Amino acid sequence: MRKLIMWNVITLDGYFEGETNWDLSFHGLVWGKELEEFSLTQLRSADILVFGAKTYQGMADYWTNAPENEGEVAKFMNELPKLACSTTLGSATWKNTTITKDAISEVSKLKKEGSGDMFVFGSGILSASLMKAGLFDEYRICIAPVFLGKGRKLFLEGIPNQELNLIETKKLSTGGVILSYVPKNQT
């Protein structure tokens, strides 16, 4: 059975995006060789990437035209199968993409069909829906050492109360910290 894993970089005060769409400038505070290798390890274990509509469109725009220095990460991002969860997308131009209008049903089905990992990157609205449905098996969050003060929070009001167990921490030389949690009922 596949695991569904959330992966996000957030600020210490909980923002995963700045005041404008795709304001991810704080990612530069934690990016370095360690986080690149961590990202590659995750991508090597993945067999599906899952996105909400806005994140899908932004990721497709970026990764299909990625700079040469993105190398192996870009290769994985472009080659891995992708699931775009959207009621509005009519077509997908990013290689290996399937669109679903029913994220909960499709993700539930895909979790039962394979053994690799499924990752949700960004996608705050989709993540809230998947959290409400109890579909995440793990949460991996990289904390960037900054207070942003405003922007878009990752964890929205209305997500269910869920106790978590910390299963791993990784301190980065950049000052960031990666925290990995699983729901308490899964340990």
Score class of each variant (00 low, 15 high):
Phe26Ile: 11
Thr169Gln: 13
Asn21Met: 11
Ala133Pro: 04
Ala133Leu: 10
Leu179Trp: 08
Gly58Leu: 08
Ile48Asn: 07
Gly122Lys: 00
Glu36Ser: 09
Thr100Tyr: 07
Ser108Lys: 15
Leu172Met: 14
Ala92Trp: 07
Ser180Trp: 01
Asn78Gly: 12
Tyr62Lys: 00
Phe16Pro: 00
Glu37Val: 06
Cys85Ile: 12
Asn8Cys: 10
Lys101His: 13
Gly114Arg: 02
Asn96Leu: 03
Thr55Arg: 00
Arg140Pro: 02
Asn69Val: 09
Trp31Glu: 12
Asp47Leu: 06
Phe76Arg: 03
Leu89Thr: 11
Met1Asn: 12
Gly90Asp: 11
Thr93Trp: 12
Phe76Met: 03
Ile99Cys: 02
Leu156Thr: 12
Gly58Tyr: 06
Gly149Lys: 03
Cys85Asp: 06
Ile125Asn: 13
Phe121His: 13
Lys3Gln: 14
Phe147Asp: 01
Ser86Pro: 01
Gly28Thr: 10
Ala133Phe: 07
Leu148Trp: 07
Ile143Asn: 02
Asn21Asp: 14
Glu70Phe: 15
Leu24Pro: 07
Thr87Tyr: 05
Ala46Ile: 10
Asn165Ala: 09
Tyr181Arg: 07
Ser127His: 06
Asn65Thr: 14
Thr55Ala: 05
Ile167Trp: 02
Gly149Pro: 05
Val182Arg: 14
Lys95Asp: 08
Gln186Arg: 14
Leu179Thr: 09
Ile159Thr: 13
Ala144Ser: 15
Ile178Arg: 04
Thr93Ile: 08
Ala84Pro: 03
Phe38Asp: 15
Gly116Ile: 08
Phe38Met: 10
Glu113Lys: 12
Lys82Asp: 04
Gly158Cys: 08
Lys170Glu: 14
Trp7Phe: 14
Val30Leu: 08
Lys109His: 11
Asp61Met: 08
Gln57Pro: 00
Ala66Met: 02
Phe51Lys: 00
Gly134Asn: 09
Tyr15Cys: 09
Asp117Ile: 10
Phe136Glu: 01
Phe155Arg: 02
Gly134His: 09
Lys111Trp: 08
Arg44Trp: 04
Gly134Lys: 05
Lys111Asn: 00
Trp94Val: 06
Asn161Glu: 12
Leu80Trp: 01
Lys171Thr: 15
Met131Gln: 13
Trp7Gly: 04
Leu40Cys: 04
Asp61Thr: 14
Arg152Lys: 15
Leu49Glu: 05
Gly116Cys: 04
Pro81Glu: 13
Cys85Trp: 04
Ala46Asp: 01
Leu24Thr: 15
Phe155His: 05
Asn96Ala: 10
Leu12Met: 15
Asn165Lys: 15
Asn96Asp: 05
Gly175Gln: 05
Glu17Met: 10
Gly71Ser: 13
Gly32Lys: 06
